[in-house]
């Protein structure tokens, strides 16, 4: 063994250990960054924990028949879910009628027809629309859309209506639908369009028969994400749909109504909130978890469709 030693090149052993100070620093930075990333999980846990605990309390306090009655009046112990679901559904429907064609039309124009310069100007303006706070749209829906649009079409309509709120929500989701759909259509390879033109197809044929079907996953995603946002929208509905305090079951969009979000809002806003641990207050959390699950499912579905577009090409 010993006579072999001279053959070794002779560096000090373990010279590649590196500076311990530097390694320590590296490790502590790693721990700090990891903890920061874990906070996001903590938030989700916090959401689920706070909603579920209180929602179960609520369900134990009431009789389940209270969830299926004639209207939603939490202070009188009436928690009719169908009133709220139908309300949310109607608002979302009106919003889609407004935002679907406008958003999709704008998307097709920007993707297929607009010059690069036009796109450069229009896209930031659409982003401005996306950045307008919903309380502003709510005010607009209440003070302008309701009297000038809804009451002109439906003369029986009053100050508050589901229709006015729905149009307001529609304005809010136009940019979402437009931008997601446009991204999807722009992802369709140029070669596909060229193939269509090569066969002598006109622009409209190419757009409607080639580009739209190719981008269909992305367009579905755009609508799903728009719906998710519409269901979760609170302030526009709280301001323009009326129904503070409660609402009887209704399917009439020209009259006031209540949605899941607005019910949460009207219960908790203002000075006359129900206090502490009574059922009316805890119903907030029950509605919250319903809303959370709904939007979560929609977002997951939207994600699947967005990813499918990306995989195609």
């Amino acid at each position: 063994m010993t006579q072999l030693t001279p053959m070794l090149p002779g560096p000090e052993p373990m010279s590649l250990r590196g500076s311990p100070r530097r390694r320590r620093k590296e490790r502590s930075v790693h721990v700090v960054l990891l903890s920061a990333a874990l906070i996001s999980i903590l938030i989700s846990v916090g959401i689920v924990y706070s909603l579920v605990g209180n929602a179960i309390d609520f369900l134990q306090k009431i009789d389940l028949s209270q969830l299926w009655t004639t209207g939603y009046f939490p202070r009188r112990g009436l928690f009719d879910l169908k009133t709220l679901f139908i309300g949310s559904l109607l608002i979302t429907g009106v919003a889609l009628v407004v935002a679907g064609p406008i958003g999709l039309g704008a998307a097709i124009y920007l993707s297929e027809y607009a010059s690069p310069r036009m796109r450069r100007i229009c896209k930031p303006i659409l982003e401005v629309l996306a950045g307008i706070p919903s309380v502003v749209i709510g005010f607009f829906a209440l003070t302008w859309i309701a009297p000038n649009i809804v009451q002109r079409i439906f003369s029986q309509s009053g100050t508050f209506s589901l229709a006015a709120a729905g149009i307001g929500v529609g304005i809010l989701i136009i940019p979402i639908i437009a931008s997601v759909a446009e991204d999807a259509m722009r992802a369709v390879p140029l070669a596909l369009r060229e193939a269509s033109y090569g066969l002598g197809a006109r622009k409209i044929t190419t757009s409607v028969r080639v580009v739209l079907p190719a981008a269909v996953s992305g367009i579905v995603a755009a609508f799903i994400l728009g719906i998710s946002r519409a269901i979760g929208e609170t302030l526009v509905v709280a301001l323009a749909a009326g129904g503070s305090g409660g609402s009887v079951f209704t399917t009439d969009i020209t009259g006031p109504g209540q949605t899941v979000t607005a019910a949460i809002a009207s219960l908790s806003f203002g000075s006359d909130q129900p206090a502490g641990d009574d059922a009316a207050f805890q119903s907030l959390y029950f509605l919250g978890i319903i809303l959370f699950i709904f939007t979560l499912l929609l977002n997951l579905a939207g994600d699947v469709f967005v990813r499918r577009t990306r995989q195609h090409y």
């Binding site: 090149p9 590649l16 590196g18």
Partner: peptide, 15 residues
């Protein structure tokens, strides 16, 4: 590398 295995657990990749 000069008698030390670069993939030994004690080795610091930065060094």
């Amino acid at each position: 590398y000069n008698g030390e295995n670069l993939y030994d657990s004690y080795v610091d990749a930065v060094e």
